Amino acid sequence: MSEHELLGAGLGALIGAILALTGAGGGILAVPLLVFGLGLSMVEAGPVGLLAVGLAAGVGAVLGLRQGLVRYRAALFVAAIGIVAAPFGLFLAHQLPNAPLALGFACVLVYACARMWRKASRELKGIAPCAERAIQPCVLNPLQGRLRWTLPCARALAFTGLLSGLLSGLLGVGGGFVIIPALSRYTNLEMKSIVATSLAVIALVSTGSVVTASLSGVMHWAVGVPFALGAVIGLVVARQFAQHLAGPRLQQVFAIVGVGAALLLAFNTLTH
C-alpha cells in the first residue's frame, strides 16, 4: 500500500470513529478531510466520502436491524426517493464551479454543527432530545408497533428523502443531519430507532450515489477503497469505546471542529 493510500485509510478511520462517537451526522467531515488531506476537488471528494460514510452507516444499520431498531419500511421509502433525487444533485455538481460548491458545503457544515451543538446543550440541561415534537404525521400503531402510513406521513418522509438525496449528489453528504431532525419532528419514534433508521437510509442513498458516480466516470476507486475500509475499521473499533467516550460534551467538541473546518474551507476557497 502506498503512502497516499495509507493516508487515505487513516483519514477514513478517523471518519469511522467520528461516526461511532457522534452519530449519523458525523460523516459530514469526510469531504473536508478529503479536500485538505488528499487534495481532491469537491466533485472528486463527494463520491469518495459517500462510499466511506455509506459503508460505515451500513454496518451500523445491520447492527440496528439485528436489534429491531430500524423501521425498514420507512427507511426504504425515504431511500427510494433519495436514490432518484441523487443523480440530479450530481448533475448540478458538475455544472457548478468548485468555489460555489465549496462555499455551499461550508454553509451546510455550519448548519449541521449548529444543530449538533444545540442538541448536545439540551442533553446537558436534561431536556429530552425529542421534547419539542409538535407535528407528528407519522405515529406508531400501539397494537402493531408499526408506523401508520397516511398521506401527511408519506409527504413528510418523501420530502426528507428528496432533500437528503439532492444533498447527497450535490455535496457528497450522507444526510444524517437532515434525516434525524426530520424523523425526530415527524414521528414518535425513540431516538435510538431514529438513528438506526437514519443509518439505513444513509447506507442506501450513498450506495445509489456511488453507483451513479461510477457510471459517470467520476469515482476515484484508488482513493475511495482504502478510505472506505479505514472508515469501517474506525467505526468498529470506536464502537467498543463509545459507551465511555460518547456524549454531549464530545458532540460539542465535534461541532466546534466542524465549524472550524467550514471556515477554513471557505477561507481557502475565497483566497484561491
Rank of each mutant, 00 (worst) to 15 (best):
P87W: 08
L50F: 06
V53K: 09
G104F: 09
F267N: 08
A106W: 15
C153D: 03
G54Y: 02
R133Q: 07
G82Q: 13
L40W: 05
L162P: 07
V195Y: 10
G217Q: 10
Q251P: 01
A158M: 13
A86P: 14
P142A: 05
A238C: 05
N268T: 14
A222P: 06
G172F: 04
L92Y: 08
V205N: 00
A13I: 04
E132M: 11
L229V: 13
M116D: 09
A200K: 04
S184P: 05
V110Y: 03
Q252P: 00
A114Q: 09
A213T: 00
A158C: 12
G169M: 06
V43E: 13
T197C: 12
S198M: 12
A17N: 00
V35M: 13
A134G: 11
A261Q: 02
K192E: 07
G234F: 01
L147N: 07
A134N: 14
A222Q: 14
A156P: 15
G25H: 12
R133P: 15
A213F: 00
I179T: 01
E3S: 09
N188G: 04
R239I: 01
F36S: 02
A57M: 08
I135V: 13
T197D: 13
L215R: 00
G23F: 11
V237S: 09
L235Y: 07
W117H: 09
F77V: 12
L101N: 03
K125D: 15
A154R: 11
K119I: 11
H244M: 04
E5Q: 15
A57F: 07
L50Q: 04
V225K: 05
L245D: 05
T160N: 08
A61M: 09
F105Y: 10
Q240A: 05
S41H: 07
L50T: 03
E132H: 14
V236F: 07
S216K: 15
I15G: 06
A213N: 03
S168A: 06
V195D: 10
H4G: 07
P226E: 01
V35H: 03
A75E: 09
L245R: 03
L166H: 14
A262K: 12
V62R: 14
A203G: 08
V53I: 15
L124S: 06
L29N: 09
S184D: 07
G89H: 07
I194L: 06
C130K: 14
T212A: 12
F267P: 08
V178T: 05
L124F: 03
V43G: 00
G10E: 02
A75V: 02
V253D: 08
L50D: 02
A114R: 10
I81T: 11
V173N: 03
F177N: 06
R66I: 04
